Amino acid sequence: MIGFPNNPDSKLSGFSFESLRELLIGKILLLCHHNADPDAICSAFGVQMLIRSIEPFSDARIFLPGGASSLTRRIMDALGIQVQNEAFIDDYDTLVILDTATPIQLGDWGEKLSKSSAKKIIIDHHSKHPTMMKISNYSMIDESATSTCELVYNIYSGMGVKPTPIVARALLLGIVYDSRHFFIATPNTLNAASALLEIDGSIPEIFSMLRSERKRSERIARIKAAQRIKFHDTRGWILAASRLSSFHASSARALIGLGADASVVAGSEKGNLKASLRSTDLFYQGSHIHLGELAQTLGAEFDGSGSGHPTAAGINCKGDVNLFLERAIFMLSELLQQVSKNHR
Rank of each mutant, 00 (worst) to 15 (best):
V161H: 06
E111M: 06
E111Q: 06
A295Q: 01
V47Q: 03
E293K: 14
A262L: 00
V152E: 05
G271L: 12
Q82E: 15
F182M: 12
I121W: 01
L71A: 11
C317F: 02
E55C: 15
D320P: 08
L95A: 08
K318Q: 14
G80I: 02
S263E: 03
Q227G: 06
E86D: 10
Q296D: 01
F231D: 10
I41A: 02
R243S: 15
P5M: 05
F15L: 13
G107M: 04
G271C: 12
P103A: 04
N85R: 04
G14D: 14
L24D: 01
A295G: 03
N191R: 15
R327W: 09
P165N: 05
H129C: 02
L332V: 00
I315S: 01
V96N: 04
G174S: 11
K318T: 08
F4W: 13
I166V: 14
H33Y: 09
L50E: 12
G160W: 13
Q338G: 14
K270H: 11
Q105N: 11
E326Q: 12
T189S: 05
I121L: 12
A254T: 09
K120Q: 05
L171T: 02
H125K: 10
L29Y: 04
N342R: 15
K120I: 03
S245F: 13
H125M: 11
Q105P: 07
V176N: 06
R61D: 12
K162F: 09
A60G: 00
E213Q: 14
F324G: 05
W109A: 00
L79T: 12
G158T: 04
L64P: 00
L335Q: 14
D93W: 11
N85P: 02
L258G: 11
N272D: 13
S250A: 14
A300N: 11
G174K: 08
D178H: 02
V176F: 15
D233Y: 05
D91L: 10
H309W: 08
S208N: 14
A60T: 01
L79G: 08
R216K: 12
C317H: 02
A44E: 04
Q296L: 13
D91R: 08
N154D: 15
Q338A: 14
